[in-house]
Amino acid sequence: MKPIRIVAPPLAANCYLLADEKKALIDVGGDIEFILRAVSKYIDPKELDYVILTHSHYDHAAAAGHFKGLAKIAIHRDEYSLIKAQGFTSFMFGVSFKPFEPDIMLEGGERIELGEINLEVIHTPGHSPGSICLYEPEKRWLFSGDTVFAHGSFGRVDLPGGSARELIKSLEMLSKLDVENLYPGHEDIVEGNASRHIANSLRIAKMFL
Score class of each variant (00 low, 15 high):
G108V: 13
A71I: 07
L134F: 02
E120G: 07
F93K: 08
S96I: 00
R111I: 14
L48C: 01
G87A: 08
I117W: 15
I112W: 11
D146C: 13
F100R: 13
G145A: 02
D103N: 06
I26F: 00
I112R: 07
I132G: 10
H151P: 02
L114M: 09
Y42K: 15
G30F: 02
W141Y: 15
Y42E: 08
I52G: 08
H123T: 05
I132D: 09
V28P: 03
F100C: 06
F149G: 04
T54Q: 13
Y58C: 12
G65Y: 01
M92L: 15
Y135E: 06
R77T: 14
K98P: 07
E120Y: 10
K41R: 14
R37Q: 15
R111V: 08
I112V: 06
T147P: 03
E113M: 14
Y135G: 00
I73L: 10
Q86R: 09
S96M: 05
R37F: 03
S128N: 13
L106Q: 04
L82S: 14
P137H: 00
E120S: 10
E47A: 10
K68L: 01
G145C: 04
H57G: 12
S81M: 14
I26A: 01
L82E: 12
M92G: 15
Y80W: 15
M105W: 04
K98A: 08
L36A: 14
A150H: 08
D59I: 14
G29I: 02
F97V: 12
G29Y: 06
L18I: 09
L114T: 07
L106I: 04
F67I: 00
V148M: 12
E79G: 11
D49S: 05
R37G: 09
L82N: 13
H76L: 10
M92A: 14
K139F: 07
H127T: 07
F143G: 08
W141L: 04
S81C: 12
E120H: 15
E79C: 10
S56P: 01
Y42F: 11
Y42G: 05
I26P: 00
V28Q: 14
I132R: 09
F88L: 08
H123K: 15
I73R: 04
I35A: 05
D27L: 04
E107D: 10
K139I: 02
E101K: 10
E136D: 10
G152Y: 12
K72G: 02
E47I: 09
E138K: 15
G69Y: 05
Q86H: 13
P99H: 13
H60Q: 06
I43T: 03
N118F: 04
W141G: 02
G108Y: 05
E113R: 15
S144I: 08
I112C: 11
L134V: 02
T89G: 01
L106V: 11
A19Y: 03
P129W: 11
K98H: 00
G87F: 10
Q86S: 15
L36F: 05
S81N: 10
H76R: 14
T147M: 05
E110K: 01
L17A: 03
A150R: 07
P137W: 09
H60S: 11
